[in-house]
Amino acid sequence: MAKIVRFHQTGDADVLKLEELPLQEPGEGEVRLKVEAIGLNRAEVMFRQGQYLEDPQLPSRLGYEAAGTIDAIGPGVSDFQVGDRVSSIPAFSMQKYGVYGESAVVPAYAVATYPETLSAQEGAAIWMQYLTAYGALIEYGQLQSNHYVLIPAASSSVGLAAIQITKAAGAVAIASTRTAAKKQALLDMGADQVIVTEEEDLPSRVMELSAGHGADLIFDPVAGPFLETLAQAAAPGATIFEYGALSPEPTPFPLFAALAKTLTIRGYILFEITQNPERLARGKRYVYDGLQSGKLKPILDRSFALNDIVEAHRYMESNQQNGKIVVTV
């Protein structure tokens, strides 16, 4: 038996239940993990609420990222063996798989070893954040050292990963945050500049900080009417990557700014990278190299016990965090 987190209806964090269920045997092409740590992501909150890209099949498990040890291997798996220390990559559907719990079965293609120098908590804080930022900024954005990169909602784990990747390329990382509460933390965690949007005009500040050039790449999880503001802050020929929908409001297309500046405004999701073997291989190599060199370093915010999974989700929804929220099993 193992303690597994499931929910039987969509809704607020209280729908999450810790249940005793029989250990699941891995099937063809699958491995089973004895989970040590879980990394929380905004996608899981949205999935639990029934507001994600796919609908849960109830009762549903959830969770993309876990670190642990392989304790069982299904038929057809040759790249791993029992005892391997691995973490899971968000390369599967939560309609079929979920890693919240003491045990998790996932596809073998969706696990990877991670550096021995990292703890299990750090191992559970790698793939979602770094591959999401890598895909937009490196794979598609072709980030260069002379670029200005604007990173809204920068205190999230993905936002901090984007700052680290921008700095690793020698480019300028301009973070934005709604209130001044997180400004100093963002500076301490590597941002070159931080714009507090409740106090400052974002387009004017971006133009000031870039000597009138604007942001070459914008990596935005907010959307909504904020997209018009971002378009005003963009450089000619810039690309705006929209990878989230934190705003509950509709997202109007900023036509005139897009025409005047010949902007590319692109919807982007992590699965473009993790479900394409060649892109995933390039992304994994980039992340491995960055972790080994120290240019990439997971930033952990707060740890919860598995029994406190409801409180962990509530904390994520409070938007207080700077970095990754983890659950220790």
Rank of each mutant, 00 (worst) to 15 (best):
T229Y: 07
I151P: 13
L16N: 09
D71T: 01
S60C: 12
T113L: 03
G214D: 12
N307Q: 13
L296H: 00
A124G: 00
G141T: 06
Q95S: 13
L227N: 08
A281E: 01
L187D: 05
Y140W: 08
S155Q: 11
E30Q: 04
P277C: 01
A112V: 06
I174N: 03
L23D: 06
A104L: 09
I126W: 10
K96F: 11
L150F: 09
L270V: 06
P115G: 05
L306M: 09
T264N: 13
S318V: 07
Q275N: 15
A104P: 11
V31C: 02
A258K: 02
E19W: 08
A154K: 13
T229F: 13
Q321P: 10
N322Y: 01
G212S: 14
V105R: 06
A162C: 06
V35H: 02
Q184H: 14
A162E: 09
S210M: 11
A168C: 10
M1A: 09
L291A: 09
F92H: 06
T69D: 00
A104K: 04
D289L: 11
A234W: 01
D201C: 02
S93H: 14
A258E: 15
G294H: 05
A175F: 03
E122A: 07
Y315E: 04
A191E: 11
A112R: 05
L160I: 09
T69W: 03
I240T: 05
L263W: 03
I165W: 00
G135Y: 13
D201I: 07
N41F: 12
I165F: 02
N41C: 11
I138D: 07
E249K: 15
S303L: 03
N276D: 15
R6A: 01
S145M: 02
L150A: 10
A223H: 02
P75V: 11
V45A: 08
T10I: 08
S176Y: 02
E199K: 06
L227D: 04
I195C: 04
E249T: 05
S156M: 05
I4G: 01
V149G: 01
T251L: 07
D289S: 15
K297D: 04
I4L: 00
L16R: 00
L143H: 13
V158Q: 12
